[in-house]
Amino acid sequence: MRNIAALFSILMPGFGQIYNGQLMKGTLFIIVEHFHNIFGRINQAIHLDFNGLHQQAVETTNFGYLLLYPGFYAYCVWDAWYNAKPNADKTKTAIPFITGGFLGEIGAIFGNRLPIPTLTIAMLMIIPMICGMIVFRDQ
């Protein structure tokens, strides 16, 4: 199922590809995901942010690596969702995922000005992608 593959990738980029049977691609995406998390200190920032330490979360994050993450994340979710259905329309279905990646980049750029940075950036990415999965569910 397409939505299950996409939800697996929302949880952890690469899991949707593994669910689709693309083991090498999924493993590569998991390695790249861990690279982004370790060097960008994304998980530490999420932990601090969700515990109310918003300024410390911003200070902990390495924005050089964080700025690479939203596009990668949106691509992983789209790739898992798109490849779960044979002969899917590639041109239209990518638009909500590109939008999610773009909004995530904008959120990351202005993250130090957001009240709850990690949650806001995550919702900027995930909401357009889920809307796209609903709108394009038959394509």
Rank of each mutant, 00 (worst) to 15 (best):
I121C: 01
A94G: 11
I38P: 06
T99R: 08
P86W: 13
I98W: 09
P86V: 12
C76P: 03
P115G: 04
S9L: 02
C131M: 13
P70N: 03
P128W: 10
L23H: 14
N43T: 15
G21Y: 04
N83F: 10
G104F: 01
I109L: 08
I98D: 06
T91S: 15
M1G: 14
C131H: 03
R41G: 01
P70F: 06
Y19R: 10
Q22H: 15
L66T: 11
A122M: 13
A108C: 11
I46V: 13
M1T: 11
K90G: 14
G40C: 02
V58G: 00
T61H: 03
Y65E: 00
F97K: 11
I95N: 02
A122V: 11
R41Q: 11
K90Q: 14
N83M: 14
F102P: 06
V77L: 08
F15N: 01
V58Q: 00
G52D: 00
Q17C: 09
G111N: 12
V77Q: 03
L68Y: 01
T27Y: 04
A122H: 13
L66G: 08
M1N: 14
M123K: 09
Q56H: 06
F15E: 01
G14W: 10
A94S: 15
M24L: 12
I95V: 13
Q44G: 12
P115A: 02
F15V: 12
Q56F: 00
I10G: 01
I98E: 05
L11R: 02
W78V: 01
T120N: 03
Y19A: 02
F29Y: 11
F72K: 09
F63Q: 08
W78M: 05
C131L: 13
T27A: 10
L48E: 05
W81S: 06
A5R: 05
G64E: 05
G71D: 00
H34R: 15
I116H: 09
P96S: 03
N20E: 04
L67F: 09
L124Y: 09
K85C: 07
L68S: 12
Y69D: 01
A88H: 05
G101F: 06
W81Y: 15
P86C: 12
L28V: 13
F72N: 05
P128Y: 10
K90W: 15
F15H: 02
F136W: 05
F29K: 08
L114P: 00
V135S: 03
A122I: 10
R137C: 06
Q56Y: 03
R2I: 00
E105P: 06
H54L: 07
L103I: 05
F97S: 07
L53I: 03
T118H: 07
Y65V: 02
F63P: 00
L28T: 13
A94T: 15
A45Q: 06
H34G: 15
Q139W: 13
E105T: 15
K90C: 11
S9V: 08
H54G: 04
T93V: 09
A6W: 07
K85I: 09
G104H: 00
I127A: 04
M133Y: 06
L23I: 14
P13C: 06
C76D: 09
F110Q: 02
P96C: 02
Y19V: 10
D49E: 12
Y19W: 11
F35Q: 10
F97R: 10
F39D: 05
N112F: 12
K85T: 12
L7C: 08
W78P: 01
T93I: 11
I18G: 08
Q56M: 07
L28Q: 11
E33H: 14
T61Y: 04
A45W: 10
M133G: 01
I127N: 03
L67Y: 10
W78C: 04
I30M: 13
